[in-house]
């Protein structure tokens, strides 16, 4: 069904250009995007690799730093009163607005892009981790206490598995945002990557190649999201959201 819908969408796109006589420099039919994109495939693949590295690095660093911070805030009343309000405020700041600054500070290289991807991914992961680790049911926490289990044992056997589903909400949201962050960072200042490519070819009146670039960005985003979803299925196959998907 969904394949038929995709096919219908691209067919409508293809033929509406012919019917409405839309000039090629505004919109190109999918068939042209495929042929022209194929002709430029080396550059597209290389730039996908460049952008992919930015996305994966920024995302990984975000997960590695955000999860322990969320955990710490959930368990420490001091951090909850100090860092947590700060985190919430910073979450409200549009991180993308920092992109020009980072590029002026750190240049056109990899680092400013990784930082922007990191910023975009970091906060949803922190906020969901805080929620995840502070919402164990009263019954389960009383049950754990009544067994006399140590804090560590309770964490490993009860708190961590109970928190994973909510953590994955953050991971998935961050995965969706990661490619957006990378593309915008590249728009603002870059000499390679898919964002850079899309900007250059659009300037050259080549919407066909811009669409090819968008296509690869989409693939990149889907790949990251797919990996996170796979991890979710492997780690929490018991959770209701996963059970419904695999039905």
């Amino acid at each position: 069904m969904s394949i038929a819908f995709f096919a219908a969408f691209f067919l409508a796109w293809q033929y509406s250009i012919v019917w409405f006589d839309i000039p090629r420099y505004i919109l190109t039919p999918p068939s042209v995007i495929v042929t022209k994109g194929w002709a430029d495939i080396d550059r597209l693949l290389y730039y996908t690799w460049i952008t992919g590295v930015e996305v994966v690095l920024g995302y990984a660093v975000a997960v590695i730093l955000a999860l322990p911070l969320g955990l710490a805030i959930a368990f420490s009343s001091i951090l909850r009163r100090t860092i947590y309000p700060f985190v919430v405020c910073v979450e409200m700041v549009p991180k993308i607005a920092f992109a020009p600054l980072f590029i002026s500070w750190l240049g056109f290289g990899l680092l400013p892009k990784v930082i922007i991807v990191f910023l975009v991914c970091f906060f949803p992961i922190v906020l969901n981790a805080i929620l995840a680790f502070s919402s164990l049911s009263e019954e389960l926490s009383r049950f754990s206490v009544s067994t006399g289990a140590s804090v560590w044992r309770t964490f490993v056997k009860v708190r961590l598995p109970a928190a994973l589903p909510q953590c994955f909400v953050g991971f998935k949201y961050a995965a969706i945002n990661a490619t957006v962050g990378a593309a915008i960072a590249e728009f603002i200042g870059s000499d390679q990557g898919l964002g850079f490519y899309i900007q250059i070819v659009t300037g050259n009146m080549r919407p066909d190649l811009a669409f090819a670039g968008i296509f690869f960005l989409t693939i990149l985003g889907l790949a990251l999201f797919g990996l996170v979803t796979l991890a979710e299925r492997l780690l929490i196959p018991w959770h209701i959201s996963v059970r419904h998907q695999s039905r």
């Binding site: 049911s137 019954e139 009383r142 049950f143 598995p161 109970a162 959770h239």
Partner: peptide
Amino acid sequence: FQDNTLVPW
């Protein structure tokens, strides 16, 4: 407890 403490995993 009133709500059982079976964990879903």
